[in-house]
Design a protein around this nucleic acid. Structure first.
Lengths: 353, 353
DNA sequence: GTGAAAGCGCTAACAT
DNA sequence: ATGTTAGCGCTTTCAC
């Protein structure tokens, strides 16, 4: 059997509540007995049972993280920020991949709730998740959306201004002299994508360029590169294709480039490409993908900080270290943090000599 | 307050053990009462408390996953395999990043133990973790190493034959006509890396090529691209540099390529490069990185299957032995699965017309 | 400063 | 088929 505080208590000739106090550095234990207890715990290789503690404290010090696809380099970057920050406050994180599947997303939401995570950070796979989140029993758990925020949610979130991002990308293309510009995206009816597309349209209109709907194509998440590659190849082989495309994420952009090159054409000479996210490979020099950058790691950290505040407000308990002011956040006051995207111009949109 | 089985019991006019039985689809409940109970649970938005269940069942249906760096695309691929397989068997996974730091690795190991995960899958950040794993209280928990296996471990593992992988990569370079070949790696004294280097040496010797120790450079994990880029640039600017390099992971290889190109030289004309892992980006056409492939997703799945078997054996019949300080795992039953690496030749090692 | 006792929400004998 | 009763390992009053 595993060693418990009872074993320690017996060996130390104290009651087990004293052991509990000693182990948790609480007041009211003689330094001497504390020392003795700590020593015994040590030599017995005691490992506190977080499950039991969670049951009585109704706090698991665990956060749930739900993302659509861990193999898209954008998300690991965010996840890192989340994990680092969480760790700093004594929390661990449960990572779940929805694989862009609504069903799986819901399943995981339920699972995380059953595991009694103290809160969740969600990069949504679609606008519909929010309905589930607003339904009991999830309604009661603190949730922060990060990056992929469902439309009209009442929850707090950290994200960038996607419309502006789309606008910047398109404007850049236009100012570089392109006029036949296309948009390649994934899943329709999803706020972040819709916004980027809206930004695209806005820029085109502002510069009085015609928006050719046949140059606007939507694929499916989960097979970004394959899908976008196929889409651009279709257009090229039809003879009627855009001379620049704004792909609403970098993986999509990579696929477009592959597609273009496989037809014998070149980037950016024949077709310019701008992506979105600024995944690590985008800056790989041979590629040099022009893209719109999101502060991935930092968004992750912020999401955790916001979540912890909401948890604190919820339980009225101070989170781990410091923050001794005791001020609680107002109930129901959700925060919307919208960061600025940044255009990063590299090689896929500028024709070098 | 949260709704518990007691609330349901009261409302259904049954004892709460009946509710438990009904909810868990156990025998011995009238279909009629079961229906009633299920309905009430539904309308009360009952969410079973996995913490409480874990406490009594001594099973959390949770696996711990410890990896060195989630932002290296190799690991998300493995993690996906792990998560998918785990999910299929009703398990969820706790993801932890050691960031290649020994201290953090140990911390997480302890944390996972406290959380009472049913087992752990570890991609080690160094050979030393294994000592911690073999010490109480971790000694009692089932562990499977995946891909990054510490030297001389007694635990089960799934990995590829790294020596053979290194051999294949080097042999390919040699047969392509290169003779001045270098090796760029990260962290010394770590089994997987050592093996790849050993494979390198073996191939060189077999083909009677001189091994120039000054072409063998070791950097630090965590900043692969920067490090390897710097290393190759140093060599190139010194005027004495290898005409081909085997980088023991793809991120390192990418850095080498960037480094080479930044000096004005080209890949593979001036310097050929072969990597290791076959991360998704390696097959990106413009890059076309020649590399040694590991079956990432499949290794993840296998690791879970093996782990589940060990957990089963553990909790099943009398495989445990009392020895005073705690439970001892039965040794000798560990399985070592060594898969074949596969050389994938692309563009960074073949000079096209 | 320390002990006794009451749960946290659930499962699992053991009754009936 | 259902109820009763112990706990799982821990924290937390409330006594002393």
């Amino acid at each position: 059997m595993n060693v418990t505080i009872k074993h320690i208590a017996r060996k130390a000739n104290v009651s087990y509540s004293t052991v509990s106090r000693a182990l948790n550095n609480k007041y009211g234990v003689w330094p001497q007995t504390r020392q003795k207890i700590l020593k015994i715990a040590e030599q017995l290789n005691y490992s506190p049972n977080a499950i039991a503690r969670g049951l009585v404290k109704k706090r698991t010090n665990t956060l749930g993280l739900l993302i659509p696809d861990i193999t898209n380099p954008f998300f690991p970057e965010v996840a890192r920020g989340i994990e680092d920050e969480a760790k700093q406050w004594g929390y661990s994180v449960f990572l779940c991949n929805s694989n862009w599947e609504r069903e799986r997303e819901i399943q995981y939401l339920r699972l995380l709730a059953e595991r009694r995570v103290d809160g969740m950070i969600i990069a949504a796979a679609g606008d519909e998740v929010d309905e589930v989140v607003e339904k009991h029993p999830l309604k009661a758990v603190p949730v922060i959306y990060v990056s992929n925020v469902p439309q009209n949610t009442k929850r707090s979130y950290v994200a960038i201004d996607n419309l502006r991002g789309g606008f910047l990308a398109t404007k850049h293309l236009i100012e570089a002299g392109y006029t036949k510009i296309g948009f390649i995206g994934a899943v329709e009816q999803f706020q972040p994508v819709d916004q980027r597309l809206l930004g695209f349209r806005l820029a085109m209109e502002q510069y009085h360029l015609p928006i050719e709907e046949r140059y606007i194509r939507l694929g499916h998440y989960g097979h970004e590169q394959t899908t976008s590659s196929k889409l651009i190849k279709e257009m090229i082989s039809s003879g009627d294709f855009p001379r620049a495309v704004f792909a609403e994420n970098d993986l999509l952009a990579l696929g477009v480039i592959d597609g273009v090159q496989s037809t014998g054409l070149t980037v950016p000479e024949d077709v310019a490409v701008v992506g979105f996210d600024d995944i690590p490979f985008a800056s790989y020099q041979e590629l040099g993908l022009t893209t719109v950058s999101q502060p991935k790691y930092e968004m992750g950290k912020m999401a955790v900080r916001m979540l912890l505040e909401e948890i604190e407000a919820e339980t009225g308990v101070d989170t781990k270290v410091e923050n001794g002011t005791g001020t609680k956040r107002k109930e129901g006051a959700s925060r919307r943090v919208v960061l600025e995207p940044e255009l990063i111009v590299r090689k896929t949109t500028v024709i070098s000599s």
